[in-house]
Design a protein around this nucleic acid. Structure first.
Lengths: 244, 244
DNA sequence: CGACACGTTGAGATATATCAAACGTGGTGG
DNA sequence: CCACCACGTTTGATATATCTCAACGTGTCG
């Protein structure tokens, strides 16, 4: 089931079996996309939305010099551009980071689903509001944390999100992105990310080698990133908040 | 009419006269709030949402040392916590920056409005997605711009948003916030904001004195902030994009 | 008039960027 | 099988933006 991971473990918006199956029925087709491919460009009119099934994707904006700022990172189960349904076109680009499997749902399918299952409207809306909650956490990360804190915060968040969809055991997960990607997420340079990762590794907090993140000292990582998972609205045993 | 400014000049989601009047009828009461008052705390259960009628408000998160990061700035016409309707509680605090007039709409009123006017569901959803678009722009600002650029970007954005609701003539508006607030928006210290504002003023780009912002050289301000107003989804003569 | 919040300025410390180069590694073609 | 290439990682030296701490100025309001 392509939609299995959508809204998994989210307080207040778990899908009923029936809702999940009508959503699944709305999937028009599934396809595989190579790594580092832009699948949606800012401004184009959209009549369908994309559910990420496998792999990692991102949203990004370019600055004048062509440098990217990632403004979103997506894990399996995320509807990467559900907001295009009410908005009709996007103000940013969407791309794959790794090779990805995506399921496409035409906007007409949402019209029908909402008509027949009114509760779904609120749950789809809710899903876009989770994205917004993540944006706020990212703003905090960029505005208030130093380089080590930003990386720690991102790793805590990603660990929690992956755990919610069964892709992390809580201390270890596969993250097939480069240090340059991490730099574009954290508003840093790749060189600095490298140095900071080294120091986190040497301190025994967390390591990130050949696409595997291993958290060795969760308490320190949480504290470094001043991470509090409330904004993810998870209903499961989430990693504890850093006690700040 | 308290709701007059809500969704003014937004492409794709202008309210019909009837929709506006049912929304207006949903306003349970209107009140005045002093400056610098937190009106919603993270985590509390909410059964109503707040429309900002006059004044400025913000959303914020605190770091470990108690320093604030503003993650949202609100102008009249904004529903500051409409996302609490699907989400039920928030992950951040909401406060006034200046003295403000707010209109309160119970969530039950939204239930009724959506039932009778199905198109309103999409427009309310759309409104929360505009907030998300602004978050993305803020991420770009914090991740990719230097201090001068961040301030310029914020002033361009605020000018455009105020112009959409008739509170800026396109070059001049009242902004009753302090340099410390600006620092908390831009992820800078108040001292540095002060220095950068001075240099922007001395270069003849923009001035900000006794609560009045005056844009003297729009082209330079836009360029400094690498500002492109597309993300605001305005249907009016917006300030031109910086040509980058 | 005094208190207080806000704005302004200076000197010095520090985090991060920049530029440059070397290193490893997996894939590809000869 | 080796040589090579592309890409990502690692390291070093230096530059610079921003922070920090501290003091002083200025306007407003009781």
């Amino acid at each position: 089931m392509f939609t299995d991971r959508f809204l998994r473990h989210r307080r207040g918006a778990v899908l009923t079996a029936e809702e999940r199956s009508v959503l699944e029925a709305g999937v028009a087709h599934v396809s595989s996309v190579p790594a580092r491919e832009t699948i949606i460009c800012a401004g184009e009119a959209l009549s369908q939305s994309t559910l990420l099934v496998e792999g990692y994707m991102c949203r990004y904006l370019d600055d004048r010099r062509g440098l990217r700022q990632l403004v979103g990172f997506h894990v399996p189960g995320d509807f990467v551009d559900l907001h295009a349904y009410p908005l009709q076109s996007l103000d940013h680009d969407v791309a794959t980071l790794t090779e990805a499997t995506i399921a496409t749902v035409p906007h007409a399918a949402f019209d029908a689903i909402i008509e027949d299952h009114p509760g779904m409207a609120r749950k789809l809306w809710y899903s876009t509001l989770l994205d917004a909650a993540i944006y706020r956490a990212w703003l905090f990360r960029l505005g208030r944390l130093d380089a080590g804190g930003r990386i720690a915060h991102f790793l805590c968040e990603t660990n929690a999100r992956l755990q919610a969809v069964g892709l992390s055991d809580g201390r270890r997960f596969t993250l097939g992105i480069t240090q340059t990607d991490l730099a574009e997420i954290c508003g840093l340079t790749a060189v600095h990310v490298n140095r900071v990762m080294r120091s986190l590794r040497e301190e025994g907090v967390v390591s990130f080698r050949s696409s595997v993140v291993e958290i060795h000292d969760m308490a320190r990582l949480l504290r470094h990133g001043e991470f509090n998972p409330n904004y993810l609205y998870l209903d499961m045993d989430a990693p504890p908040a850093s006690s700040y």
